[in-house]
Each structure stands twice: as C-alpha cells, then as structure tokens.
C-alpha cells in the first residue's frame, strides 16, 4: 500500500539487466581484483545510495556496477581461466567460511597471471577496509523543497502581570 499511482517506480524493462549468476566462492576468489578494476563505479554507486537512501535514484549506477562486473569476469575467463578455477575450487573446499588462508599458493599464481596478462595488480591488504575518498561529477542530491506553514506568533509578555508573594525568598534558587 505505500505507492500511489503517481509515484515513480521503474518498469520491469528498466529493472531487467543480465545478472551475474555465480556462487560465493567464485565471487570471493575474484573479489579483490574486481574491487580494484571497478573501483570508481562501486564508489559512485555506494555514494549515491548513501546520499539518497533511495534505490530508484541509483539504478543507473547499479547497472554500471553489474556491467563492470561482467566486463571483469569476462577478462578473467578469457585470460586466466585455469588459475582462477584452481583458486576458487581451493577456496570452496578448504574451509568452512571461505577464507584465503589455506589457498595462498593458488592465490599467488592467480595474482601473477592477472598482473601479467590483464594488468591488474592486487591491492595491498587493508585497501578496501580503509576509508576511500571519491571524487564525482554528479550533483549532490537534495530533496525537493516544500512550503512550510507560517510560524506561530510569540506569546504575550507576562512581565509585571504576576504578583510576587509577600514572603517570597530574597536569595537562593527561588529568588
């Protein structure tokens, strides 16, 4: 019941884009290089949502992120398919919570391949956990202005209209 007929909701055609259909280990294996490759798009999208808190206004940024994801994983598939396969299988079968620790050897091989053939260097540890500054050309989002009601008039002055009690204390808190 929240949406009126006049409220904007994107149509199904706008919402339908090719989605990445991959499981978590695969995403985890390519995550660090993906973050470096699509750094600008990701930051743009997250900044947009943080400013507007409105998924309708960040649709194009989100589509851009997904398109960049397709581009990145396409490159991985083209150039480093075998190394990536070994790496994400290791992540999948080595631990319960999909950590990198038991797969350092495969990760090294994959990193070398990515740097050699695609030209993406794995960012240093802690790169994404730090705060990153983003410069954007997009104008800052502001909510539309609404007319405010007239301010309430001030109450009439009570100075001199309240008589003081005969025995009111001269000093202290109540004086």
């Amino acid at each position: 019941m929240p949406w009126k007929e006049t409220d904007y909701l994107p149509s199904y055609e706008e919402l339908t884009v090719p989605e990445l259909t991959m499981t978590t280990p695969v995403m985890r294996a390519g995550a660090l290089h993906f973050g470096k490759y699509c750094d600008n798009q990701c930051k743009e999208f997250m900044l947009c949502y943080q400013e507007t808190l409105d998924p309708r206004k960040c649709l194009n940024e989100g589509k851009e992120v997904t398109r960049c994801g397709f581009e990145f994983f396409g490159k991985v598939k083209k150039h480093c398919a075998d190394e990536f396969m070994k790496f994400h299988e290791c992540i999948d079968f080595s631990s319960r919570d999909l950590i990198f620790k038991p797969c350092k050897k495969q990760q090294k091989i994959f990193d070398d391949c990515m740097q050699e053939k695609v030209g993406i260097e794995r960012p240093p540890v802690g790169y994404f956990s730090l705060t990153r500054v983003h410069h954007t050309e997009r104008p800052k989002h502001t909510l539309p202005e609404i007319p405010l009601p007239d301010p309430i008039p001030d109450p009439p002055s009570v100075e001199g209209r309240i008589p003081k009690h005969k025995h009111w204390p001269k000093h202290g808190l109540l004086s």
């Binding site: 989605e19 992120v65 994404f128």
Partner: peptide, 19 residues
C-alpha cells in the same frame, strides 16, 4: 584480507538486491 574481499563485492550484491 577476507574483510577486504567482502567489502569489495558488496556493491555487486547491493545493486542486484535493489533491483
């Protein structure tokens, strides 16, 4: 490093979730 990886792919999941 694992935390890094989670943060890096978060926009991908978030974009799809919004749609």
């Amino acid at each position: 490093e694992v935390n890094d990886a989670r943060i890096a792919v978060f926009p991908l999941y978030e974009a799809e979730r919004h749609r």
